[in-house]
Computed example of a mutant assay.
Amino acid sequence: MSPATAVAPAATKAPPQTSRAFDLAFTPAPPLVRQARRITRAFLRLWNVNGELAENIVLAVSELVTNAVEHGTGDVGLRIQYPDGELRIEVTDDNPAPAELRHADDEELSGRGLFLIAVLARTWGVSDDGRTTWCVFRVPARRS
């Protein structure tokens, strides 16, 4: 009989960390708004951001990208960052005229996008150069 050999327990590997940020850049075209929503949804699922919060974030992406496609100039950039507890959406185009919150009349078919973002997001704003419109959503910690 051989002497007992001590075996060290195998080290458990932590699951691989995925980046909690992504960037998209595209030539402005209305069909790309739908693609931006789909890509955002996919990342939100990956990051376990679900339910009504995820739908509100996708709506904000849709509104900001639509504004950039319709009113911006040059390529459109979408950046989403989710470092910890907050998710930040930034949409950039080459138009230096900043996005402005306005109050649409009941009969108007558009003009409510930034109003929706102001209601849904924790905060929102426009960069000093007017080219980037951003908003931030608080993401509550998930219970175990």
Score class of each variant (00 low, 15 high):
Ala11Trp: 12
Cys135Ala: 09
Arg79Ala: 15
Val126Cys: 03
Val76Trp: 01
Glu108Asp: 06
Thr133Ile: 04
Leu114Gln: 00
Val58Phe: 03
Lys13Glu: 12
Thr73Gln: 13
Trp134Met: 03
Ala97Met: 05
Ala10Trp: 06
Val136Ser: 07
His71Ala: 09
Lys13Asn: 09
Asn56Tyr: 11
Pro98Met: 03
Arg79Asp: 09
Ile89Glu: 05
Thr92Tyr: 02
Thr133Lys: 05
Ile117Asp: 01
Leu101Pro: 09
Asp128Arg: 10
Asp105Thr: 05
Pro96Leu: 03
Thr40Glu: 02
Arg122Lys: 12
Asp75Leu: 11
Glu108Val: 00
Trp47Ser: 03
Arg142Cys: 04
Leu44Arg: 04
Glu107Ser: 07
Phe137Ser: 04
Ala118Ser: 15
Arg45Phe: 10
Pro3Gly: 11
Pro140His: 05
Arg20Leu: 06
Phe43Pro: 07
Val139Gln: 09
Leu114Ile: 01
Glu100Thr: 12
Val61Phe: 08
Asn48Ser: 09
Leu114Glu: 02
Arg41Trp: 07
Val33Asp: 00
Thr40Leu: 00
Ser19Arg: 12
Ala21Tyr: 14
Pro16Asp: 07
Lys13Arg: 12
Ser144Val: 12
Asp84Phe: 08
Asp106Arg: 07
Gly111Lys: 02
Thr73Asp: 14
Ala68Gly: 06
Ala121Thr: 06
Val61Glu: 07
Ile39Tyr: 01
Asp105Pro: 03
Ile39Val: 12
Glu100Arg: 12
His103Tyr: 07
Ile89Thr: 10
Arg122Ile: 01
Leu101Ile: 06
Arg45Ser: 09
Arg102Gln: 12
Ala8Phe: 14
Thr73Tyr: 11
Arg45Lys: 10
Gly125Tyr: 07
Gly72His: 10
Arg102Gly: 06
Thr92Leu: 04
Met1Cys: 14
Asp84Arg: 13
Thr27Asn: 00
Ala104Tyr: 08
Val49Glu: 01
Gly77Phe: 08
Gln17Leu: 13
Arg102Glu: 08
Arg38Tyr: 10
Ala4Arg: 13
Arg143Glu: 10
Ala29Met: 01
Gln81Glu: 14
Phe26Asn: 00
Leu116Val: 08
Arg143Asn: 09
Leu59Ala: 10
Leu120Val: 02
Ala21His: 14
Val61Ala: 05
Ala11Tyr: 10
Asn48His: 13
Phe22Pro: 15
Val136Gln: 08
Arg34Phe: 09
Arg143Thr: 13
Gly113Met: 02
Arg142His: 10
Trp134Leu: 02
Val119Lys: 11
Leu78Arg: 06
Thr5Asn: 09
Met1Pro: 11
Val126Lys: 03
Thr92Ala: 03
Asp94Pro: 05
Glu52Tyr: 15
Asp105Ser: 06
Glu90Thr: 00
Ser144Leu: 15
Ile117Phe: 00
Phe26Asp: 00
Thr18Ala: 14
Asp84Lys: 11
Arg38Lys: 10
Thr12Gly: 11
Gly72Leu: 07
Ala54Glu: 06
Phe137Val: 05
Gly77Met: 09
Asn56His: 14
Val69Phe: 04
